[in-house]
Amino acid sequence: MKEKIDAIQAEALARLATADDTRALEDARVAILGKKGSLTEISAGMRDVPKEQKAEIGQLLNTARNAITAAIESKQAELQAAADAKALAGIDLTLPARALSHGSLHPLTLIRHQAIEVLRRMGFALADGPEIEDEFHCFDALNTPADHPARNEKDTFYFDSGKLLRTHTSSVQIRTMEAQAPPVRIIAPGSAYRRDEIDATHLSVFNQLEGLYVDRDVSLGDLKGTLEYFFREMFGSETEVRFRPHFFPFTEPSFEIDVKLHAKGQAPKWIEVAGCGMVDPAVFAAIDAKRSDSSFSPDQVTGFAFGMGLDRLAMIRWGIKDIRLLIENDIRFLKQFA
């Protein structure tokens, strides 16, 4: 009996060792452990084993069964591993990716969003107003004299109704202050229109971002601090910012803001990026007259305003040489912003 068990085990292990596919393995398992399998049959012989040998033979049988089962499992794992490896063999990882169309946001949206995010961190809320404006909101209330060149029909789009397309987003300052008493802390991105022939540096419809802060004790220091912080966030913390005195009808004092641009391969140069100033008391007077109150009395409040061209910021940011690229929507251009 003992010899038989040893022989069956040896034969079984040998057969398993040579099984080289799952079919052969399964056949072997049936031949050894199946109902009529060799080990099953000899196990049936236990009945005839003398009592005193039963324990010993039983143990031998168990050992043999365990060894065979282990061999089957190990062979199974080996065959599975081989099959898995075969299934993955020859896959060329270096083939190009399956094409997926990925879209993009327009560069103007990207620069506008960055500006808005920075200014929101500083506590500005968004505001807007109509693009078809009237002379009051676009000019009169902004202290622009009746015969100011900007009001000329050669420079501004008018309608037969006498209304016009706003020449700057500054009209939103007026709209906001009409509706809201101080404190006012708003930004207004939007389109503006001028009768400029479209060329590499001009669009007749362009995009601005306006800002206004009116409260008690708003000072030149606030104007400076706010815009220095803003442009350093936009162009990098080391950015040099300078304020050049300038003239705008609706602010006094007024400044133009330059940042020092360090473009690769070029000498650093100052680039004009925005206009700003302290809100002119004449603007507050116009608002109070319209509101019929004294919410914006210059004795009570002061404020600063600023405005910048977003198309221009986008051109500076990405070194775009022709502004028309921003309205032509060539996918080859847009893709670069994906």
Partner: peptide, 18 residues
Amino acid sequence: LDAVPSRFQGTFVPSSAV
């Protein structure tokens, strides 16, 4: 304007419908 020190402060305002 260099002579005027920068100041960093501002009032809190609620977000708007815009």
